[in-house]
């Protein structure tokens, strides 16, 4: 394959120029829209706030004007409060009876331990 510059027709050059211009235009249009969007949103918010009643307006503005120190105080208070919380636990203390089920694997040891722990009972059996 040879590099033949004459193969590039005028229609190809037009296509390139138009194509690249459209890509640029699309992104320039997006740039213009989003560069101005915050201003538009600010105007819309301003108009909406004017329409709302006085007490409500006060509440909204105070919400927006929270200083960093107040935020930090609230965050610390919440943190301390949640840190203090503890899972609820059952406070009743009981002694549960531990039952040992019979098992052919441990029966001997079990019986030996029984005899060691209860010598008097064993004596009664001997009689």
């Amino acid at each position: 394959m040879k590099f033949d510059i004459t193969a590039i027709g005028i229609e190809h050059i037009y296509m390139t120029l138009i194509g690249y211009t459209i890509v640029f235009l699309a992104l320039v249009a997006l740039y213009l829209i989003f560069d101005n969007l915050p201003k538009v949103l600010l105007i819309i918010n301003g108009l909406l706030e004017k329409k709302t009643e006085e007490p409500k307006q006060h509440a909204v503005s105070s919400k927006h004007n929270l200083s960093g120190a107040v935020n930090a105080a609230i965050a610390t208070a919440l943190h301390l409060y949640f840190d203090e919380l503890h899972d609820e636990e059952i406070t009743k203390l009981t002694i549960n009876k531990v039952s040992r089920n019979y098992s052919p694997w441990s029966s001997k040891i079990y019986s030996v331990m029984q005899s060691h722990l209860q010598p008097q009972t064993n004596k009664v059996i001997k009689k």
């Binding site: 394959m1 590099f3 193969a7 590039i8 027709g9 190809h12 390139t16 690249y20 890509v23 640029f24």
Partner: peptide, 17 residues
């Protein structure tokens, strides 16, 4: 947008090849 120049110049280069 500027970086898309590669697409269109290569398009011309491929035709020449």
């Amino acid at each position: 947008a500027a970086a898309q120049v590669g697409i269109f110049l290569t398009f011309l280069g491929a035709i020449a090849l």
